[in-house]
């Protein structure tokens, strides 16, 4: 199944898309997506309940976060209460090493995103300060990448033996599904997603036209 692992709704400061409109767009455009993950900036959206939309549109909608670390932005999957006590999701200079360690200890998974992007991507920081040993997965396909940025991410993954995921980084409705991650196993919830990421049965796919 294909999941877009990186998207933002109006809950993010720079998101301009309503979740229902993502669903309508996926159906109207017949996108090859079985679901998407909302990764709101610097927060976890505890309030929203998208189960009715899931039922209406037959699309899986999962919730996650995008936090900001000293090595760039990081997607956090499997967010739970323990994790939210372990570090401040609203901070902009978290320690990547700590975020990865705490996320995994609390049952989740941390995945640096758009690694090829200046300042907010892993590659530039690796170049200056060396690698972080606890990284195992990075986002190698990002729908918001400029020319050369995904290539830099793929090169980084090859150099360090990381697995790669894909996500659109959609902030507008029409951007959803530009990139995704293909999983070999069915995913029904956040726990399944974390398990699949840990098992490594996935690949990043680009659906850019």
């Amino acid at each position: 199944m294909n999941l877009d692992l990186h998207s933002h709704s109006i809950k993010s400061d720079d998101g301009r898309a309503k979740v229902e409109n993502y669903c309508e767009w996926i159906r109207k455009k017949e996108l090859p997506l079985d679901g998407f993950v909302l990764t709101e900036h610097r927060q976890f959206d505890d309030e929203s309940d998208y189960r009715n939309l899931e039922d209406e549109y037959g699309i899986l909608i999962l919730k996650a976060s995008e936090v900001e670390t000293d090595y760039g932005h990081v997607l956090i999957f499997g967010v739970n209460t323990d994790m939210r006590h372990a570090y401040d999701f609203g901070a902009i200079n978290l320690s990547l090493d700590h975020v990865i360690e705490a996320s995994e200890r609390c049952g989740g998974m941390a995945v640096p995103c758009h690694p090829g992007r200046p300042n907010v991507g892993l590659a530039a920081h690796y170049h200056e300060r060396g690698p972080v040993n606890s990284v195992t997965i990075i986002e190698t396909r990002n729908g918001g990448s400029r020319a050369g940025e995904d290539e830099a991410s793929i090169h980084l993954a090859e150099a360090y033996g990381y697995r790669g995921v894909g996500g659109s980084d959609a902030h507008l409705v029409s951007q959803i599904g530009k990139c995704a991650t293909r999983f070999d196993t069915p995913i029904r919830n956040e726990a399944d997603l974390v398990a699949a990421l840990k098992n490594g049965d996935f690949e990043a796919v680009s659906c850019q036209t």
Binding site: D13, H41, R42, E68, G72, H73, I92, N93, R117, P118, N119, V120
Partner: peptide, 13 residues
């Protein structure tokens, strides 16, 4: 008023 990091580094809005 809020802070975030972007392509050009840390920023205050």
């Amino acid at each position: 008023i809020y802070e975030k990091t972007g392509r050009s580094g840390p920023m205050t809005f």
